[in-house]
Every structure is written in structure tokens, then in C-alpha cells.
Amino acid sequence: MAVVFEKPKALANVPLHYCPGCTHGIAHRLVAQALDALDCADNTIGVAPVGCAVFAYDYFNCDMQEAAHGRAPAVATGIKRVCPESVVFTYQGDGDLAAIGLAEITSAAMRGENITVIFINNAIYGMTGGQMAPTTLVGQKATTAPYGRQLVGQGSPIRVSEMIATLDGATYVERVSLHDAANVNRAKRAVEKAFRRQIEKKGFSMVEILSTCPTNWGLSPVEALNYIIKEQMLPVYPLGVLKEE
């Protein structure tokens, strides 16, 4: 008998604070599995965001810095310039990365910072209680879009990965999803590739992970996977490699 699945070593042995069924936990595990696979946790510095993943600094067995809202790519830039031989990653949500931190993520990609960005897109602000994000779908309800996001006045969702992929400095951009095991395994390969490319000094890499927020979507965890991600997010946020150079 061999162990075919166990908790990765780079994931701290503490309970995650996330709501039941929140796929942040899966995404954390994928990052930890990548650090284990590449045997680099002791040479890694992660940057936690503001948002539901604000406590990410407690969950990874590596050095961590907690950034201000949206500033993780700037903080990671500072770390990487001091520690160019270390692995540096940010873990950011859609409010953090796609709203308040749009300048920081865009400029870090433009500069071609040799860092890895894990971007969790669940189309809503989770920690603050379900407000509209730039990634919220048209018609999707949020506490600050109680009638559903309106095209006129609130616009349509921003596709950050497509935008970042237009920048020469970004060399690997892929969008993946966590709505079933096959896709989780694809996401696992993408995350590991993003980290491996950083170690190979191939430049800026970003993996956008479509994720759930059952609590603020008002759905059960299983419904959240099937109803929102599979049926509603995938048509707006198509999966696949947007750039690989």
C-alpha cells in the first residue's frame, strides 16, 4: 500500500478558517503541493493579500509577508529584488488584484518581475460580506448590486488574464477552474508550472483560478461548483493557456 494522497508538507498543520466548501482551501493545497514538488519551501517567500486569504501567512510553511490591499505585487517586487534566488509568490483575490491592485499587478507584469501570482477569481468580495467585484458577472447579485450587476453604470466583468497576457513581460498566463477533480488536477499542473518557470527564471507567471464563494453566493458548496462556475463563469472566463513563451 502506498499513500496516493496526503496533506502536503508546505501546508501548515492548522485548520483553515474558510467557510465550508470554499475552494480557497483547494487552491492553498495546490500551492503547497507545488512547493513540495519543487522542494523549494525553505527558499520561498509568499505574500498574502487582503481579503478572505488575509491569513494565508498562517497556512504556508514558508516565510510570508502580509501586504496592504492590492499591493502584493509591489511587495513581492521588493522581496524579489533583495532575494533574486528565492521563490516569491503572491496569493490574491479578485477584489485585491482586479480592483484596488490593478496598477500593481499590471506594472509587475510589465516589468517582467520573475514572480508567481496565484489569482483567485470568485466574482465577489468574500471577507467584507459579498460586495460586487470587478469580476462579478452581469446580473449576478451582490450586497452592493442588490438588483444584480447592471451593464449600464456598473459595466461588465474585467478579464484580467487576457489583459495581462497582452504584456510582453508576462510569459505564462493560464486560467483554470476548481469545479471538478479533473479541473483541479489541471490547476495543479498549472500552478506547479508557474512556480517551475520562476525557478527557471522565465519571468512573470500568473495562474487565474476560478473559485467559489458558497456563503456569499447563497448556494450550497456543490451547487456553487455546478451552478456558478460551470454554468455561468466558464462562458465569461474561458479556461486555458492565454500565454506561454
Partner: peptide, 19 residues
């Protein structure tokens, strides 16, 4: 059957699978 699909989907790393 030890396919580990359950563990793959578990957000809390609560499942260990041996085969």
C-alpha cells in the same frame, strides 16, 4: 478504489488515501 477524487476536492485536506 483509492482514486483520491474525494481528497482532490476536499478544501480542508481532511482525507488521506492509500492504495
Amino acid at each position: 478504489i483509492g482514486c483520491a477524487v474525494c481528497a482532490t476536492m476536499c478544501p480542508d485536506c481532511a482525507i488521506t488515501v492509500e492504495r
